[in-house]
């Protein structure tokens, strides 16, 4: 069992395209594989595989939301003042909780002197699993819009994936954009990371931020340059970054009109346009990941694990009145 995360920091650089290709290549090599969509806020991997129906759909009701009992409320305004997320506002002489912002903590209900606030369970979204037309399962989630803590949902997605795939599957985890809780949950417990970058300063900036997080988890990583020909002059800078950080360079993928065309057909690029330039590059890179990383994981881990860990050191300011530890 191995868990490989595809991540990029920046959105729209080709994570799902690479994830889908890699899963297909593993499948074609007779391996058991599970495609895991770890972006619950903008889940797209199933669309690349053309998955239209889910075999398992579970309501995920982990979240809370605050409610006001207006018959008890005396409009003192303490809840508005204390809400850490500024989710409470006075509207037409009534305090109203913005359900698109409330994180469901207990602060307002405890702070309220009238005990006028309580909280109720709310649907945070749904977990789902199905089969791709290519024989292997896909697991994902959809966060209810405006809800917090998508990271917890991603952890649930990974748990469900493992229930389905068992101990002898390879897990290809397609991470969300960013470096927040969804990505942290994707990296936790993983065995390696494939970074996807575009040759632009913005994309390298985001990948460098993401890589700091990867180093927190002491994970080895490899890098793929997508849309390499849109700005080839910038490629040396990416290669220098990879070398400095001991990241394996796996190759580059050209910009290719066939990529959006395959998305519109809702079929993976390598299935519909196997001869297109991006297809060939993606197949080469996926084969390298299979041979050099997945089948050779112990050695790869030793060779590319971060030289020094990036320990988590929270920046803490102590209160004056508490001495010692």
């Amino acid at each position: 069992m191995l868990e490989i995360v595809i991540a990029s920091g920046k959105g729209g650089v080709g994570k799902s395209t690479l994830s889908s290709t890699l899963a297909l290549i593993l499948g074609k090599n007779g391996e058991k594989v599970v495609a895991v969509d770890a972006d619950a806020e903008a889940p797209n991997l199933h669309l690349i595989f053309g998955v239209k129906e889910w075999e398992i759909v579970k309501d995920y009701r982990e979240g809370w939301i605050a409610k006001i009992r207006y018959e008890k409320c005396d409009n003192c305004g303490i809840c508005e003042k204390e809400c850490p997320f500024k989710a409470i506002k006075l509207v037409d002489d009534k305090y109203v909780i913005n359900e698109m912002i409330c994180e469901g903590c207990l602060t307002c209900s405890i702070a309220c002197p009238q005990r006028a606030i309580y909280r109720v369970r709310t649907s945070s979204g749904l977990l789902r699993a199905g089969k791709t037309p290519y024989g292997f399962p896909i697991v994902g989630a959809k966060l209810a819009v405006g809800r917090p803590n998508s990271g917890k949902l991603v952890t649930e997605v990974k748990n469900l994936a493992k229930e389905i795939g068992g101990n002898d599957s390879y897990y290809i985890v397609d991470a969300a954009a960013g470096i927040g809780c969804q990505v942290v949950s994707s990296l936790a417990g993983a065995n390696g990371v494939i970074l996807v970058v575009e040759p632009t300063p913005a994309s390298l900036n985001d990948v460098a931020r993401l890589h700091k997080l990867v180093k927190h988890f002491m994970l080895p990583s490899a890098i793929v340059i997508n849309k390499a020909d849109i700005n080839p002059d910038f490629i040396p800078e990416i290669l220098r970054f990879a070398e400095r950080e001991n990241i394996q360079y796996l190759g580059k993928i050209p910009y290719d009109d066939k990529v959006p065309e395959s998305l519109i057909l809702m079929k993976p690029l390598i299935q519909v346009f196997p001869e297109s330039p991006a297809s060939k590059a993606l197949i080469d890179i996926s084969n390298r990941i299979y041979q050099e990383i997945i089948l050779n994981w112990r050695e790869w881990f030793r060779r590319y694990k971060p030289a020094k860990p990036e320990p988590y050191k929270p920046l803490i300011i102590r209160p004056d009145n508490i001495p010692g530890g």
Binding site: D39, M100, G146, P148
Partner: peptide, 8 residues
């Protein structure tokens, strides 16, 4: 990107 409460 996304549709969660960091966006709202």
């Amino acid at each position: 990107a996304g549709t969660g409460n960091t966006v709202s």
